[in-house]
Design a protein around this nucleic acid. Structure first.
Lengths: 338, 338
DNA sequence: CCTGGCACTCTGTGTGCCCGAGTGCCAGAC
DNA sequence: GTCTGGCACTCGGGCACACAGAGTGCCAGG
């Protein structure tokens, strides 16, 4: 196993590289960190670290930079999560408290995260399937056309227009609305299919078709792939390191536009705490030179969605993880209040 | 005034420059366009065009590139709007028709526009103030807490949580809901303030405070600055010309993140047709090297919002204008149907 | 096991050079 | 008067070259 000092050398390399964005050499290391040994010794340690695959040289006779594996070790063993300072916490809370609705909460969260971490922020809307139903509203738009509005406890609102097979009376509509709400209000979305299963039975034969249509639209809204939404922001931060890779930034922007990719990315994080995926650990190719720091957030104990940031593998992991965790915590509070 | 041939020379310069992305010289011009005159003659014309400020040289002894003023003349006088081909029209329609709700319509529109024009697309949500009310829903979340849900004819849904000064009974709530809807349903949002003015009068004294609170929240939702939302996409297209300006792309991304800036940008376009703002015509500094092509769209005759694209001044204006116009037309149709 | 010294290997930068594209201008042709 | 061909001039881009600087690996000695 690696000796204690070698781990310190690795930590120093990561910190310096993150700070300077330049390969770090043995001499600079001993100058900037009091390791108590000479550059030559550090060189030996570096050779060992390179042997093990934690660091690499961009080319002969340049300094070393950490590999994905090096960052992984750093994140897992060498660095903690840097907690936010009290003033920062207050700033977060103030910023989020002014939000008027869910869209606003999400928009503010994205802006906040992007600003705090100076990276690209991604926030998923609370998942329908992990929320509970607050209310289902049915509105007659036309004799044979109904609008279905779904409201969750997290403040999310979904609407669908349903074309009915036959005209549907206002009385039947009110009836359906009442029965539907009495069954599903306050219940979890995952239970809804079971709860409404036999609902059509209580209706006249002529209305039954319409009821089924409405219900199947309701159920469709809950299909996993369709129901997820997210918001991203802070893409301008990508240009901060565009000097190295004007051509690395493009696949990242492309990946960010593919909501599916992002959702999968966030979804992979199962850990209750902050999850970090580094470089090639990300399945998507365009994100091979980036790291994703994500965490679940929720109004109560359970996570209803995820949020996180996407940045270069060369990022300030402790600070980023701290910011992500803190923001998730406060968003959860805000959601619980409303 | 400029002779007919000089205008043709300008048109040729714009077309070639847009195609090749390189300054265009007199010789290349005569080869690629049958102007019927020699390079020397073209040189004289170019000198005149430069004198007038329509074209410029990046440096002595390079070809010419159009100035903002040159593009302006090109757009106004020398080029039309290129209509979409029938297959393209069908593709647009098919793509938009699968949308399930307004968010989906907007998201698809952004994707479509970005893809068609290969530029950054911006789509504004239908403005509340230019829509009509379909329904106002009130839900009791707690004895003294009400959720207000606002649904427009364009499918937009806004929600707000209202904290009441005193507990509000379910009966009063139903009463308020009924009276509110009977007054505002089907009416334009701009008329709402007037229509609900004397509504509190019809209530018991103890409920009047709550009614006022609810109404003022309703009116706040309509305040111009807050009620506008938009979605952008296709930012990856910015990297297509990042080789010239890895440093021009940053202010553009920054400008795109400032919703306020974008809204102002779109708002400036008052023209009923497609509006083009070129380079320095854009008030925002970060967008000085970009052009904005925008147009209003709406479900009926009147525009309820704007959409458009942002790209380099060196863009295919006829094609872009054609795409923007066509998309706006189909989005209007889709909105009218739902 | 650590250290100082030494030879070696790269990259980045700056210089000088040449080539080519493109221009402006002028004298002559239509 | 307008167009054309010719000519001298200018400037940027590409290439070869040399050089300095940073960093390494290795080895012998403490």
């Amino acid at each position: 196993m690696l000796s204690e000092r070698r781990l310190q050398v690795l930590r120093a390399i990561v910190q310096d590289y993150v700070g300077t964005e330049e390969p770090v050499g043995s001499k600079a290391l001993t100058e900037r960190h009091s390791l108590g040994v000479s550059p030559a010794t550090v060189r030996n340690d570096m050779a060992a670290l390179e042997e093990e695959g934690f660091i690499a040289q961009p080319h002969t006779s340049a300094g070393r930079i950490p590999t994905d594996k090096g960052y992984r070790l750093f994140v897992d063993k060498l660095a903690g999560v840097k907690p936010m300072s009290p003033p920062e916490r207050r700033a977060i809370q103030n910023f989020l408290e002014g939000a008027v609705d869910l869209d606003d909460v999400v928009a503010r969260t994205v802006r906040l995260l992007a600003q705090l971490t100076r990276q690209v922020a991604v926030v998923q809307y609370p998942s329908l399937t992990r929320s509970t139903v607050r209310h289902v509203e049915l509105l007659a738009l036309a004799p044979a056309r109904v609008m279905l509005v779904l409201i969750t406890d997290t403040g999310r609102v979904e609407q669908r227009v349903v074309d009915c097979p036959v005209p549907f009376g206002e009385a039947s509509l009110a009836d359906l609305r009442a029965r539907l709400n009495s069954r599903v209000a306050g219940r979890r979305f995952t239970d809804v299919p079971r709860l409404v299963e036999d609902l059509p039975d209580g209706f006249e034969a002529e209305d039954r078709g319409t009821v089924c249509t409405v219900l199947s639209t309701l159920l469709e809204t809950l299909v996993e792939e369709n129901e997820e939404r997210l918001m991203i922001g802070g893409t301008a931060n990508l240009t901060r390191f565009a000097h190295d890779f004007p051509l690395t930034i493009r696949p990242v922007l492309e990946a960010l536009e593919e909501q599916v990719v992002l959702l999968k990315l966030l979804g992979e994080a199962q850990d209750p705490g902050v999850t970090v995926r580094i470089g090639h650990e990300n399945a998507h190719e365009g994100l091979n030179s980036t790291s994703v720091v994500s965490v679940g957030y929720g109004s109560g104990g359970e996570a209803v969605a995820k949020l996180g940031v996407v940045g270069p593998t060369r990022m300030d992991y402790p600070g980023t993880m701290g910011a992500v965790r803190a923001v998730a915590r406060y968003v959860g509070q805000i959601l619980a209040e409303s």
